[in-house]
């Protein structure tokens, strides 16, 4: 092990709080500033911090690039899935009012629809940001 004790311990203490803060931003987005984009970036920032302190090799063990790529694609699928779900329930594409029964309160469906698509945005942004960081940091430099 190297001698960077303060950095390693500090990262280990802070990382879970960064992740929790990202989730807070995600789910508090209905009531205050925040939402999927910001939460995704903050979620990714925790992994970037980990990679900076522990090295890219260890970060790849924690979060393989493939998982990041799949996350990036999965978010779009979740988003489209919510849209198609409301379509199959009898409404228009992305009309969340139809997510529940037509007699049901339409605002209920709207609320869950927004939570669903925000989740999709979170997953995509998180995956894309981590993948971008890996792409740039994992590149080997050829001297020219």
């Amino acid at each position: 092990m190297d001698d960077r004790v303060i950095l390693r311990i500090g990262t280990k203490i802070l990382s879970p709080f960064i992740l929790i803060f990202a989730l807070y931003v995600q789910f508090h987005g209905d009531y205050g500033p925040g939402g999927g984009f910001q939460a995704g970036v903050i979620f990714a920032a925790a992994f970037v911090l980990y990679a900076l302190v522990f090295g890219l090799g260890n970060a790849i063990k924690v979060m393989p690039p493939k998982v990041a790529y799949i996350c990036g694609a999965m978010g779009v699928v979740i988003y489209l899935g919510v849209g198609y779900l409301s379509m199959f329930r009898g409404g228009e594409f992305l009309n969340y009012s139809y997510l529940f029964d037509p007699e049901h309160d339409p605002t209920h469906g709207q609320h869950y629809g927004i939570i669903g698509i925000e989740l999709g945005v979170l997953v995509t942004v998180f995956g894309v940001m981590v993948a971008l960081f890996y792409a740039f940091a994992g590149r080997r430099r050829i001297d020219t």
């Binding site: 939402g35 984009f37 942004v125 894309v128 792409a135 740039f136 020219t144």
Partner: peptide, 24 residues
């Protein structure tokens, strides 16, 4: 503008990766 910022970082990443390839 919320969406514009995130799209902006996406285009920036694409441009930077082109710069890396040009440098290589």
């Amino acid at each position: 503008m919320l969406t514009a910022i995130v799209v902006g970082v996406a285009t920036l990443a694409l441009g930077l990766s082109l710069v890396v390839r040009i440098n290589e």
